[in-house]
Each structure stands twice: as structure tokens, then as C-alpha cells.
Amino acid sequence: MTVALKVEDLSKTFALKKPLFGAAPPGVRAVRPMSVEVQRGETLGIVGESGCGKSTLARMLVGLLEPSTGRIEIAGKALDNADPAAFGRLIQYVFQDPISSLNPRKTIRQIMEAPLRLLYGMNREARDKRIAEIFDSVNLRHEFLHRYPHEFSGGQAQRIGIARALAAAPEIIVLDEPVSALDVSVQAQVLNLLGRLREEFDLTYLFISHDLAVVEAVSDRVVVLYFGSVVEVGNAKTIFNSPRHPYTRLLAESAPVVGRPLTAPEQKGTELPDPLNPPPGCAFAGRCPKATDICRREDPALRRMGEDQFAACHHPIEA
């Protein structure tokens, strides 16, 4: 297997406004230095709650946001210029809100043609042929090309978004909550389509979602983020059944499941730490039942905990 995407020490700190007097505050660390590798043809799921940095990470990967530190390698080549067009041919993005990712004043044909013309310089004939091929792959009717985005339902619009990403013929597609705005019956259609396209076009996916069940259903491996850092990485089959990090377990137990009685795994009204004033040590320590002094002092590093599972915890859950 070859490595499709390699990320080393990638981080993003948003600078805060310097006050009139005094030094500038340290800034908000949306993503702390993280390293991730994705194999070709693999689907890497990224889960985490709001504010964990998953969208910031995704936007850095596709070049929409410049990283503060670190490097991104796609298929062995480093991408260090922040030119989205250079990224565009290698990595594409499917947005959460399908309707707002399509310009309301353009026809679907105009939207589909842009990447073909600008990234590949195709002439009209080649473009028409390619668009027809892609539309067949994503089950969209050809007469849709003359319509405007507001005429489509969420599921159709998301398929158009996927078709646009495919038009750039990328190696990797970052899917940022691609089904969370869709109804469940339509969600399944889109997820199955994504699975089929991965085989057909030999794609690598980064699938970002807050829905553990969806992530588990589509992913090979899963990364769990908390407060801007990777807290656990593991095989999708096992990570939620035998989590090593207490946060992963909390997530898995919080998801409502048919047939499990209602329990709040956390009775306290616990909240995320304040990003402007992050606590020292492990960010999860304040909510963690197993936290001890070392957790509040030292930030745990990601350690191997089993065959293909890694967790950043001083007191991991025993398997």
C-alpha cells in the first residue's frame, strides 16, 4: 500500500487581536500539532464534537487555510504553497451544506465546467463528455445541467457537490459532514454512492462527522479529536467497542442506540475547556473520571496500545 496523504506536525493557531496596550495574547490553538497518515484507497474517519478542530483541519488539508506549522504531503509530494488550484487537482472538498456550496446564480453546467476548464484546460467537447460520464456515475439526470441550485433537494444538491469534486479527478476527497444536513433515507443513498465511487475511481477519503454510527459504517480507520488534538486512532471495527481513551468511551456511550436504556454517562454539566485559557496537561482531565495529578500537569503523547490502536492517555482503559 502506498501513502496517499501524510501530515506532519500540522497545527493552526488563530492570532488574537493585539490590545492597544500590552503584548498580544497567545492566540487560539484550533489544531495542535498532529501527524496523520492515510493509505491509498483508505477511508479515514475523523470524529469529534463541535470545537474540536475537525473543520479547521479539513480546510488546511485542501489549502483553504494556511497552516501555522507542519507540512502536508500528497502521494509523496510536499504541498507547501497555499495555491488552492495546485491543491485542487490532488485533493477536493465536499461541503456540509450542499445548497450553500453551489452559487445560486449559476447553472449546474457552469458549476461543473469550472474545474474542468481551469484545472485541466479542457475544450468544450471534452468537457461535455467528461460531465456526462460523471453525471452517470453519481446517478444524476443530464437535464439537471441547465437548472439552478435552488431547484434541487438536499440529496440531489449533495450529489452535485460530489460530482463537482469528482470533476477535478483528485486522489483524495475530504468529506466534511457530507450527510449531516440530509434526511436518513437520503443519507443512506449518498453514503452508498460514496462507497461505490471510492472503488470506481480509486479514491481516498477523509470522512469528517460527528455521528459515530455513520463514521463506523464507512471508515477503515478512525481518528478521534478532542480540543484540537488527536486523542485516539484505531481500527473502525474495534475503536468504539474497545476504546482506550476515556473520551472515546464517553462518545460511544452517549450515542443514542435502540435497545439501550437512557443513561447520561456524565451527570455533571461538563463543558469544553476555554480555548482562550487552555488548561495545562490533558485537555480532557476536567471531565475524566480517571484523572489524577499527572493528567493536570503533563499533556499525554499518543502511544501504541495494541495492534493498530493509539491513544493519548496517562491512564488508558484496559482492553
Binding site: 433537494s153 440529496g155 436518513v184 433515507s185 437520503v186 443519507q187 443512506a188 443513498q189 453514503l191 452508498n192 462507497g195 455521528d211 459515530l212 454510527a213 455513520v214 463506523e216 459504517a217 464507512v218 471508515s219 477503515d220 473502525a236 471495527k237 468504539f240 467497542n241 460511544a252 450515542a255 442506540v257 435502540v258
Partner: peptide, 24 residues
């Protein structure tokens, strides 16, 4: 019945999901 089948449930592993074709 088919709507319930559409909903992925945690613990099911990687799989093809049942979908309802068409739109309401």
C-alpha cells in the same frame, strides 16, 4: 421498516446501508 434499516447503528461495522430510493 425501511427507515429503521437506513439508520446506521453503532457496533455494526463497515457496511452497505439500506436506502429508500426516490424522495418524499
Amino acid at each position: 421498516k425501511r427507515l429503521i434499516a437506513c439508520v446506521p447503528e453503532l457496533g455494526g461495522g463497515q457496511r452497505e446501508l439500506a436506502a429508500i430510493p426516490g424522495l418524499p
